[in-house]
Design a protein around this nucleic acid. Structure first.
Lengths: 282, 282
DNA sequence: ACATGTGAAACCTTTCACAGCT
DNA sequence: AGCTGTGAAAGGTTTCACATGT
């Protein structure tokens, strides 16, 4: 998660839980789609499905924003779009600078989801002089030397780092020095920033490793399933209790009660909650 | 589904918390760096700093894996690298297919962090016939028609979706149908998958929106800071208690205890304390 | 009749603090 | 003396279930 967490302690009234904040963009996207289809109102159940969460969670989330729904009816789509946008700060313009225009930086520069959400790419920066002057996604790439003036002229407060890992901290320092207070880091490295600066990181390799962990476990579970079924069958035959110690010398197998066989399949997709996304350039 | 009962089964020996799993790749990266510098052992404190977490959390995380440290000494770097790799399933080869070879897909295909972690790009797929046959990152792009044979021949169980949002669900369905059970989704859309399939998503726009939220709040805090200072001054002058109700009709201001004024300036690093530039809207 | 809004319970994660081993 | 490993406390998040309002 973010390196420099700003700690809120006192006043509770405006304290929207972090987990809720992380889901607001999800709701906003779903609502925008409804809005485009001119759907006037939506229930928590419908919206939750569209956003990929459950309805209790959605209602709880919205309750932190205020009472924007109507009992017996649902939520007014347009009104909610506005309220969430405002809460997220998307009703204002956010100039963003992207540093490191390799494959990934170029992809980010051309990403359509930015402009539609109030983000504006104010400039592209690369350290390679061979890149400077080139046009990428309709913008001219500028040299790192121009980083500070660009930030100050355009009032940039959000920076995106898409450089190789080795350059990231130096770039980060310059961004912060120049006044940037929020950083989205695609380089696979930990950034040190002073308090008051927010860092979010996106790391592809980490995401894949998490998937690999679950994938491995699934493979292991198939074996367990067979074990559990066998054990259950044996238990049924004998009317005896099924008991097992911890699996011997590690490996992939783990002791699992037979009753878990059903629960084992529960692992549904869509596990956004914890955040921690990821990526990085060559 | 049916099982409405809250049947929490006892045996949980191998249940590593999700939050811990999400951090293992972080530790692994830090450890790999130490390993390359031939550092033999490391303390929880040092490793935690390198990974950007605190040491208590790290120790707790490791405690779920087993007792791999030595009291009074620390952890053996090589041994830990191996144990974590094994736990994450990185000691085996994971063939991956990338679907959608646009800017982003190309960036992913060229990502160096793959091979070093046991991931191997088994194939690149794109729906655009103009793309097929082209070389990207040393691999030949193949047409969507070849998706299923590719998955089956190469034993792919992890798929990466980097297509436009509109195509993502269809691609996802085909991946799942062909046997893929883990998906990393870069398309800004919710994917519906059957139970047993894992989806993780990486959404650039969402990350930026979360940053914007905090950025906005920071801007609001400056105002609060001034308020708090004024309030503190007033309190000092009067020796009276500072008390405030919730700010009247919402808006951006919220009541904040005066005691926060100091904390808000805390900045650790060597950053210049100066500005914290307000975002000026165009 | 129906869907929101919310206390309370259940669950999960982080932090504390110190016993226990080297 | 130093550092791990871990119960217990604290804090945060999700789910439940129903009172409340339309």
């Amino acid at each position: 998660m973010a390196t420099g967490r700003t700690h809120r302690t006192a006043t509770r009234s405006r304290g929207i839980p972090e987990a809720t904040v992380a889901r607001l963009p999800l709701y906003l996207r779903a609502l925008t789609a409804l809005s485009e289809r001119s759907v006037p109102t939506v229930s928590s159940e419908e919206l939750a499905t569209a956003a990929g969460v459950n309805s209790a969670k959605l209602r709880k989330d919205f309750s932190y924003l205020g009472s924007y729904g109507t009992r017996g009816v649902g939520y007014d789509v347009e009104y909610l779009v506005y309220q969430i946008s405002r809460e997220l700060g998307l009703t204002q313009d956010w100039p963003v600078v992207i540093v490191g225009i390799g494959n990934l930086g170029a992809a980010l520069a051309g990403y359509g989801g930015f402009a539609s959400r109030g983000f504006r790419v104010a400039g592209l920066i690369d350290a390679d002089r061979a890149m400077t002057g080139k046009q990428v996604a309709g913008l001219t790439v500028r040299h790192t030397d121009e980083l500070e003036p660009l930030i100050k002229e355009s009032g940039v407060s959000i920076g995106v780092i898409a450089t190789p890992a080795g350059a990231a901290q130096a770039v980060c320092n310059r961004l912060v020095e120049a006044g940037v207070t929020s950083i989205l880091n695609f380089a696979p490295t930990v950034l040190n920033v002073p308090d008051g600066v927010d860092v979010r990181k996106v790391d592809l390799s980490i995401e894949l490793q998490i998937l690999a962990f679950h994938e491995q476990r699934k493979a292991g579970e198939e074996a367990e399933l067979r074990d559990a079924e066998a054990a259950a069958a044996a238990a049924a035959a004998q009317s005896g209790a099924v008991e097992r110690g911890t699996a011997g010398t590690a490996g992939t197998a783990a002791g699992t009660a037979a009753g878990n066989a059903a629960a084992a399949k529960k692992r549904t997709g869509q596990g956004p909650d914890g955040d921690v996304p990821a990526v990085m350039p060559a």
